Amino acid sequence: MADQLTEEQIAEFKEAFSLFDKDGDGTITTKELGTVMRSLGQNPTEAELQDMINEVDADGNGTIDFPEFLTMMARKMKDTDSEEEIREAFRVFDKDGNGYISAAELRHVMTNLGEKLTDEEVDEMIREADIDGDGQVNYEEFVQMMTAK
């Protein structure tokens, strides 16, 4: 299944994987998964984290390695993001709930994920998604960005 991913997608997933893999040992533990999910405003229980890991832990060693992570991402993409997942993601970014993602809100979430971005990089990300040019990202623009192939 992971063989249907483009090189660009694999590179993006590698970057995402390293955000989860806090200690850089090449595997994601339940603790690391929990840290990232909490930084995104989720509050999973230990059991939920274990279930999430077990779902993709092909070799049964209790952690997720990069090939397992790729399989999980490929699977998720095949079920292409349901509207509800996209709306949920939008809410994570839209901290003040005004229906727009500002540069400050984007920077806040990315920083929580451990991504240190310059102001230019954040502005560039907003510009790429900002179709109507108002300097922020509304829900429609967010959907376009998330579903762009």
Results as ranks from 00 to 15, higher is better:
G114T: 04
D94G: 09
V122I: 11
K95R: 13
D81R: 12
K14A: 04
G62I: 07
Q9L: 13
I101R: 00
I64V: 13
T35H: 05
D65F: 05
A58W: 01
K14C: 01
I53A: 15
S102V: 02
I53S: 06
F13L: 11
D51N: 07
V109E: 01
D23K: 15
E128A: 14
V137L: 03
T35Q: 10
A58Q: 01
G114A: 05
N61A: 14
Y139W: 09
T111Y: 02
V92D: 04
N112C: 03
A11G: 09
S82K: 06
D23I: 02
E12N: 09
N138P: 15
E46C: 01
H108P: 09
A47P: 07
M77R: 12
D130P: 01
A148G: 07
I28H: 04
G34S: 15
D65E: 11
A104L: 06
L49Y: 15
E68W: 07
K76Q: 02
A47G: 10
F69T: 02
A148P: 07
T111N: 00
A103E: 00
I10K: 00
E140D: 09
R38S: 08
R91F: 05
A104T: 09
E83A: 07
S39V: 14
K31V: 02
V36C: 07
D96G: 12
A148S: 06
E121D: 12
D81V: 14
G41R: 12
D59H: 15
I10A: 00
Y100D: 13
G41S: 10
Y100H: 13
R107S: 03
E128H: 09
R107N: 01
A74C: 03
R87W: 15
E15I: 14
K95M: 03
F13G: 15
D79V: 08
V92Y: 14
I86Y: 06
K14N: 08
Q9K: 09
G133Q: 11
A104P: 13
Q4R: 12
M77G: 09
G133W: 01
E120V: 11
E85W: 00
P67T: 11
P67E: 07
D94Q: 04
L5M: 11
S82L: 12
L113Y: 04
E115L: 00
D81A: 14
I86P: 10
M77Q: 15
R127M: 09
G133D: 06
D3F: 00
L106F: 08
V122E: 04
H108N: 13
E128M: 15
I101L: 11
G114S: 00
T63W: 05
V56E: 07
G133I: 01
K14H: 02
A47Y: 03
E120Q: 02
V137I: 12
M73K: 14
T29P: 11
P44E: 05
F142E: 08
E7W: 15
D130C: 08
Q136H: 09
D51L: 02
A129D: 00
G99E: 01
Q42N: 04
L113I: 10
N43D: 10
D132Q: 04
G99I: 00
A89R: 00
Y139S: 04
E83S: 00
Y100S: 07
I10N: 13
E124A: 13
T35G: 03
V122K: 08
P67F: 12
G62Q: 15
Q144A: 00
N112R: 15
D51T: 06
E55R: 14
V137A: 11
E105V: 13
E105T: 15
D59G: 11
S39Q: 15
S39L: 14
G24S: 10
I86D: 14
D81E: 15
N61D: 11
N112L: 09
G97S: 10
E84I: 15
E83N: 00
M110P: 04
M77L: 12
T63F: 06
R91Q: 09
M73Q: 06
Q136T: 08
R75C: 02
N112Y: 09
E7K: 08
T6I: 12
D21R: 09
L49I: 07
L106D: 15
K14I: 00
K149R: 12
E88F: 04
E32P: 01
E124T: 15
D81W: 10
S102I: 06
M73T: 13
F90C: 05
E68R: 00
Q144H: 09
Q136V: 05
E7L: 06
E121Y: 10
G97H: 03
R38I: 01
F90I: 07
D25V: 09
M37P: 02
E121N: 01
A11Y: 00
I64C: 13
A58H: 09
E68D: 09
G114C: 04
E55N: 08
K14D: 12
Y100R: 09
S102M: 05
T27W: 05
V56R: 04
P44S: 11
N61K: 07
L49Q: 02
M73P: 06
A129C: 02
E84M: 01
G24I: 15
Q136C: 02
E8H: 08
G97V: 07
E32R: 01
E12R: 03
T118A: 12
E48S: 05
D81N: 09
E85A: 08
T6V: 15
Q42G: 07
D134L: 04
M110R: 02
K78C: 13
L117G: 07
A16R: 04
S18C: 07
E85L: 05
R127V: 06
S102C: 14
T71K: 13
G114E: 05
K149I: 08
E128G: 11
E46I: 14
V109S: 05
Q4N: 15
N112A: 03
L33R: 04
V137Y: 04
N138T: 07
L40P: 07
N138D: 12
A47D: 08
H108L: 12
E105L: 07
A58P: 15
D23Q: 05
V56Y: 01
D94L: 09
G135W: 03
A103W: 01
D65L: 06
A148E: 00
N54E: 04
N98K: 13
F66E: 01
N138L: 02
E85R: 13
F69H: 04
I131F: 13
D3Q: 15
Q136K: 00
Q42M: 02
N112T: 11
K149Y: 14
D119E: 14
M37V: 13
L33E: 00
L106C: 04
L117A: 09
N54F: 04
M146R: 02
L49C: 01
L113P: 04
G135C: 12
K149P: 12
L19G: 04
L117E: 07
I101P: 01
T118R: 09
A74L: 05
A16P: 03
M77S: 14
D132I: 00
D59W: 04
M110Q: 04
S39A: 10
K14S: 05
G34D: 02
E85T: 11
I53G: 04
E48R: 06
N54Y: 13
L49P: 01
K14M: 06
E7S: 02
A11K: 14
I10W: 12
A11T: 13
T111I: 12
T27S: 11
E121H: 05
K76H: 09
M37N: 15
K116M: 07
E84K: 09
V36R: 01
K95G: 04
N61E: 05
F90S: 02
L49F: 11
L40H: 15
K78M: 00
E32S: 15
A11M: 04
D23N: 13
D96Q: 15
L70M: 11
Q42E: 05
D81S: 00
Y100A: 07
E88V: 10
E141T: 15
I126H: 09
K31P: 01
M52F: 01
E85M: 14
N98A: 10
K78Y: 10
E83W: 11
G133P: 01
S102T: 06
K76V: 08
L106W: 13
G62A: 14
M77K: 07
E46F: 03
S18T: 10
S82T: 04
F17N: 02
Q50W: 07
F69I: 04
V109C: 09
P44L: 12
G41P: 06
R38H: 02
F69M: 00
A148I: 06
D3N: 09
F20G: 06
S18E: 04
R38C: 08
F93V: 10
F66V: 12
L117N: 02
D130A: 03
R91W: 04
